[in-house]
Structures are given as structure tokens and as C-alpha cells.
Design a protein around this nucleic acid. Sequence first.
DNA 1: TCCAATTTTAGATTTAGTCTAAGAATGTGG
DNA 2: CCACATTCTTAGACTAAATCTAAAATTGGA
Lengths: 158, 158
Amino acid sequence: MDGIREKLQKAFARTGLRRTPQRHDVLAWLVRHKRHATAEEIYEAVNRSNQRLSRATVYNALHALVESGLVRPVAVEGAASRFDSTLDRHHHFICDRCGDIEDLAWFDLPGKAMQAAAGGRAVRDVEITLHGTCERCARGKTKHTPNPSKTRGEQKAC
Amino acid sequence: MDGIREKLQKAFARTGLRRTPQRHDVLAWLVRHKRHATAEEIYEAVNRSNQRLSRATVYNALHALVESGLVRPVAVEGAASRFDSTLDRHHHFICDRCGDIEDLAWFDLPGKAMQAAAGGRAVRDVEITLHGTCERCARGKTKHTPNPSKTRGEQKAC
DNA sequence: TCCAATTTTAGATTTAGTCTAAGAATGTGG
DNA sequence: CCACATTCTTAGACTAAATCTAAAATTGGA
């Protein structure tokens, strides 16, 4: 119905990454829920619906998926890394106040300027992250609690 | 001789951040050594030359400095955050293989595209990180060990 | 089918970073 | 110059993130 099965099948085939049930589940969850989840959240969510997989397996699967480009890590200062399916390209916006991560429409970098700055280096990927205040926080809605799990660190109550 | 004292004095004055000896030492070290150091490295380095400051103080100082914009955190997936003086603008390049972080010359984002993508959000800062293979790793020099401290995580021997 | 390589697993371990409560330093108004 | 409130630092305990280990399970191919 959902086509996800086929989509993932293709993705695995394309990258040559061995498709284990565990990797499949992790990727499927990430594709379905476009949240920027931590490894811990994925661990809990996937285990809630399916068979159990261990924490180490979640990390292994995530790393394998990152390695082959199907998943992208979003590192956050002072907090657990979050993960993101790359099946559609996009950039990120991180709110200074509440720490929420939002997707932005993709746009290109000026190729020339980038090449010049990169010099002789081989560039595989470009990561653009905007920082600022999200609309909810700007409006002063204090209820906005984007990371229902342990929101460790900086974020001021918001 | 070095003008750093005055430069920092100005920086503190400009941002209104209280200049404590500890914050000064942390910032001074970051300005002098343009490495992208972890909190732990800073802790060790600063204590090597000067009086002792506690780990908590290093974190406190770093957060205060980040808050007031004098220092920028560089989050890295699966590893300790690194820190960077912002006294000159630049972008980053992170090597997939060895994990090294290099500075790139500053270049601007196409303002229109960015505004369009950001929508109504208030953008404070733009962070551009290129990922790929650094020149040393490309040349296959296996000696390249950029993070002499605990290089935890992904990096293949390189 | 059998073997070698890969993957998963549970649990222990390491490391990053925060928290707490108490004490020190600082700045301000009188 | 003093008193008081505020801010900052500190050590160490604590929490959480992520890795590591060694053993068991699964897989793909000859």
C-alpha cells in the first residue's frame, strides 16, 4: 500500500548494503517518522512495535546506514546525535531556545565559491544548518517541547 | 606584544560578558591555538600552563562564551563537541576518514534562497560544513592522526 | 551442506557532560 | 569602605551516550 517496502528494497540494492531485518526496521522507522530521533528513541520505538533489538544493534545499524548514505547524522552540541533519512534532500534549522530541529527546503550552495573554499579537497556532501529562533518560540508559546524524551542541556524552558 | 589581551578585553566589553580570569584563559587559549579542541583538551591545556580550573568551570566558561557568540561549538556525530573562536568567520570541512576538522575560507550563502527556505524563522547564524576526504587522507598518508587525544568512534585508521 | 564472513546480542565499560551545594569573588548602593 | 545580593567557581557524585567484547546467530556462496 505504502510502497515503503519497495523503496527500501531499492535503497539497499542501490547502495549494496546487506539488508538485515534489523537495518530494515531502523530505516523504515526513520523514513516513516520524519522526526530527528536519537538512537535511544529509535531503539524504543522500533522495539515497541516489533521484536526486540538491542541498543548495540541500533547503533550498528545506524552506522551502517550512515556509511552507505541512506541516513544522515545530525550532531547537536551537548546532546545525543539525531538521525535522519536522506531519501529527500533538505537542510536543517535548529532553534536556539528549544533545541528543536526542523527541515528546510533544499537549496544549492554557490558552486564556485564552495569549490574555491574547499581547495583540493574531495567534497562528498554539504551540510547547511541555520540557527535562530523557531516560530513557536518567537511567538512566546512556552508549551513547545519538541524533544519529548530527555531534553538534556541548554534549552531554556520554552 | 601579541595584542591578544586587548583583543579579548574588547571582545568581552562588546558582548557584555563578565570577564573572569577563567573565561579569559579559555578564550585566550582558543584564540591562540586555532585547533578545534574538545572541552577535555582545553581543560588539560589551560591547566598545564596556568592555575587549575575545574572541568565544570571549563564547561561553564565555554557555554557562557558560546552564549555570547565569542565561541562556536562544532558538534560531531558520536564524539565530543569541539570549540572554535569566532573572531574570524569561517566554515568547516570534516574528513570522513580521519575525522579531522579543517577551516575553510568564509563565503556567503545565496541570501534569497536561504530566506525562502527559512520562511518566517529568525536566522541568527548559518553553519556550513563540507564533508569528504581531506588531502592527507586522499594521498593515503596513513600517519595522519589529527586528534591526538581520544579519537573515539568512526575514524578508520588513516 | 559446510564454511567463512558478517551480523546481532547482552552486558560491562568508557567517556561526555550535567548537577549540586558550598564557598569565593565581584559589583553596587549606601 | 562596608554590607548585601548576585554571579562565578569548584570538587565530586551522578546521568546518559556510545563503544567494546566475546559469544551466538545468520547469511551467502562454493
